[in-house]
C-alpha cells in the first residue's frame, strides 16, 4: 500500500506545485488507479515524488507502513517496488538492441545472466515483442518503442507500475492494444497508476480516480462518482467520456466500457 500524507512539493518553497496531498493507493478494490487533470496540474510531479526522484518539500510518502527515506539504498528498494514508464520512449532507451535495453535494470541490480535472460524472455513474450528482441531500436515504431520502454521496467517485477500518458502518439490500434495490455497486467496482479488526457481510455481502463488540479486533489472516487459530475469536470477543464454523456443525456444505463454497451445491445 502507498500512502501520501500531507505531501507538498515545489522547486522553490514559495511556489508549490503539489499542495498538501493526502491519499491512499492500493485499497482492495483498486487495481488500476487513474490520475486525471488538465495540463500543468502536477500529475507528472506527483509521479516523480512517488518514485523518489523528487523529494517532498513537506509531508511524507509511506510505503507498506514505512516512511520513505532518501538514502541511496532505500531509494533503490523503493524503485524496485514502484516502477515508472515516462511519456517519451526515446529518452528512456539507452541500448541499441531491444533485449539489451530490457536487461539494463537487471544488470544494474547485478542479477546473474541466466536469471536476466529468463526474465527478459518472459517479459518480451508477455508484451508480444519477443520477435523484436534483436531489432535495433531506432527502426521501431512509436508503439513498439513504448512496449520496449514498459518491458524495461516490467522486468523489475515491481508491485506498482506508473504509466505517464501511455497512449500519447499511438494510433487507434496501438491504443487498443495498450488497453488490452493493461487489462492483461492487472489480471495477473500488477497494480497500475495511470495518467492520460484521453478520458475515454481512462474511463475504460481505470477503476478508481483522483482528479488533480493546481496541485490539489479536487476529487476522488470510482468512475461513476467522478465522471458523472459534469460540473466538476468542466470546472477542471476536463471532459466527460462519451459513455457517461450517453448515460446522462440520452438516458442509457451507465456502462463500464464500450464493449459492455454493445454486448448488451447485441444480446437484445
Amino acid at each position: 500500500m502507498l500512502e501520501l500524507k500531507n505531501l507538498s512539493f515545489g522547486y522553490e518553497p514559495q511556489h508549490l506545485i503539489l499542495k498538501n496531498i493526502s491519499l491512499q493507493l492500493g485499497n482492495n478494490h483498486q487495481h488500476v488507479i487513474g490520475l486525471i487533470g488538465p495540463n500543468g496540474s502536477g500529475k507528472s510531479t506527483l509521479f516523480l515524488n512517488l518514485v523518489g526522484v523528487l523529494r517532498p518539500t513537506s509531508g511524507q510518502i509511506i510505503v507498506d507502513g514505512q516512511p520513505v527515506k532518501y538514502h541511496k539504498h532505500n531509494l533503490q528498494a523503493l524503485r524496485q517496488k514502484i516502477g515508472i514508464v515516462f511519456q517519451d520512449s526515446d529518452q528512456q532507451l539507452f541500448y541499441s538492441i531491444v533485449q539489451d535495453d530490457v536487461a539494463f535494470a537487471l544488470n544494474n541490480l547485478k542479477y546473474d545472466t541466466t536469471e536476466i535472460q529468463r526474465r527478459v524472455q518472459e517479459v518480451l513474450e508477455e508484451l508480444d515483442i519477443w520477435p523484436l528482441r534483436k531489432s535495433p531500436i531506432q527502426y521501431l515504431s512509436g508503439g513498439q518503442k513504448k512496449r520496449v520502454a514498459i518491458a524495461g521496467i516490467l522486468v523489475l517485477q515491481s508491485e506498482w507500475l506508473l504509466l505517464d500518458e501511455p497512449t500519447a502518439g499511438l494510433d487507434p490500434d496501438g491504443r487498443k492494444r495498450m488497453a488490452q495490455l493493461i487489462s492483461h497486467l492487472v489480471a495477473r496482479g500488477q497494480k497500475i497508476i495511470l495518467s492520460s488526457h484521453d478520458m475515454d481510455f481512462m474511463y475504460d481502463v481505470c477503476d478508481y480516480f483522483y482528479l488533480l488540479n493546481a496541485g490539489q486533489i479536487i476529487a476522488e472516487g470510482t468512475k461513476k462518482t467522478v465522471f458523472t459530475n459534469q460540473q466538476l469536470l468542466e470546472n477542471n477543464k476536463l471532459e466527460q467520456p462519451w459513455l457517461v454523456k450517453l448515460h446522462q443525456k440520452l438516458g442509457l444505463p451507465l456502462y463500464n466500457n464500450a464493449q459492455e454497451l454493445f454486448d448488451q445491445h447485441d444480446s437484445m
Binding site: V51, V53, F86, Q91, F94, A105, L156
Partner: peptide, 22 residues
C-alpha cells in the same frame, strides 16, 4: 532537455554508473 529526461529514466532503471556491454 534530453539529459534531464534521461536522468529520470536512469533513476527508474536503477542505474549505478556503468552500462554493461556483453
Amino acid at each position: 532537455v534530453n539529459y534531464r529526461k534521461m536522468e529520470l529514466a536512469l533513476a527508474a532503471k536503477l542505474y549505478d554508473g556503468e552500462f554493461r556491454i556483453s
